[in-house]
Design a protein around this nucleic acid. Sequence first.
DNA 1: GACCAGGTCCTTG
DNA 2: CAAGGACATGGT
Length: 209
Amino acid sequence: MDERDRIQTIISILNETYGTLSWWDAPFEEVAIGAILTQQTRWENVEAALTRLRSAGLNTLSAIAAADPADLESCIRCTGFYRVKSARLHQLATFFLDQYHEMEEIDLIPTDLLRRSLLTVNGVGEETADSILCYGLFRETFVIDAYTRRICTCAGVSLPDDQLRRIFLSALGSDNRLLRSCHGQIVEYAKEYCSKKRCQECRIRILHE
DNA sequence: GACCAGGTCCTTG
DNA sequence: CAAGGACATGGT
């Protein structure tokens, strides 16, 4: 059983377990903000920060670009790394506002070009870029994060991120709905079955044989 | 009180 | 280039 087969099997097990998932359904700007805030951070803490940002009227890119850093920091403190993240939010916001004036302009940019462009923003790495592209802009890409790696390792697949991404993409096809569903399934499954203590119940582990 | 969380950047060897 | 550290709060 090669890497590709194992990943195909992972996908089948996830589909049997959850069916198609609707996951991280949020407006583009909140996806972009959340993608930065969730770096190395539990989602519950990100939710709390998003709530604070909304109350403060700082849940849009233009508001963030114009905000006093201290205000931004106080809203996102609960996500940790708040000084770094405040700077990253500001950089991402000004990137979008400087480069594109309307969403229609963004929609015209091919995905790989937009991806490379996002990666030039300080504070935006591969995972953050793919999250914004996949969940915020409905593009054809796939998110490789700690959960994806953990599940793959469980299945006996250890490959560099870029190869994992290629294999998942070719296995899943170009439907954005399926791409986001699969990554959502991975997160749900990893949280439920691949935590430190109960990795025994993980069906994906069987692929080791 | 240690240890980890849906990363990324910068500095060293 | 690989490895190691910094960034920081909140939950187990």
